[in-house]
Design a protein around this nucleic acid. Sequence first.
DNA 1: ATTTTATACATAAGTTGCATATACATAATA
DNA 2: TATTATGTATATGCAACTTATGTATAAAAT
Lengths: 119, 119
Amino acid sequence: MYISVMYANELIRGTLKSIILKLLAEHGKLYGYEMTRMVRERSGDKIQITEGALYPMLHLLETEGIVTTESVEIGKRVRKYYKLTAAGKMTAKKKISEMADFLQTMQILFDLESGLSHG
Amino acid sequence: MYISVMYANELIRGTLKSIILKLLAEHGKLYGYEMTRMVRERSGDKIQITEGALYPMLHLLETEGIVTTESVEIGKRVRKYYKLTAAGKMTAKKKISEMADFLQTMQILFDLESGLSHG
DNA sequence: ATTTTATACATAAGTTGCATATACATAATA
DNA sequence: TATTATGTATATGCAACTTATGTATAAAAT
């Protein structure tokens, strides 16, 4: 599952696109499987992206012109690398700041304000 | 719309149940319309709960035994107050701490850590 | 040697949690 | 007298997932 052990499934719904864009904005170039590893590790095993969610989303991002792909043969296997287009970088920026804003609003609703401000 | 002006709809999906439980845990007794006002105000107009989302969810919570209701006539109109049952209080506690944990994980993924710790 | 696990991508079918629209009704405000 | 606010309720439909399945190579464990 895209959501793992820790959270009720509903909570994660809607965050996938933003997570992918954040990873690509940070690392420049990543392949799908690599993204799942990164999210899993950085979330302390709390979030596990499923392939059923990931690959359709990556294909969508490509058709939307947000990412471009490059296939690389590793031995006899193929890795498909994704990176942001120029337009994709702007989309990523918007999505990331939208997420920051959303998280802050949620923290207010749940009395978890930290005094942290996001520009 | 449950989600308003500010956020892409996907982001809020999944948070409604937790928001309701948090409000009830805080205030003890609330009616539906009142909840929508509170969320709207506390989110700085960024989140607006829709009736189409709210009432079915409240009914569900009632059939699940998480809340009980009390109808009060205000003039000729009826207000339906909701409050947590004993079981509901435990559910609320779990959901609230799940949300805190989720928000923290998201902050890590998006490099927004604040040093805030949630017990 | 052979089974299991990890790596790597992909798609189809079904479910859930909402948005959108609509309905009904009272009370206050312009 | 028209609009806005208050107040609850249901139905239809869609999007973003979950679950399941398929294909294939490579490494590790038994």
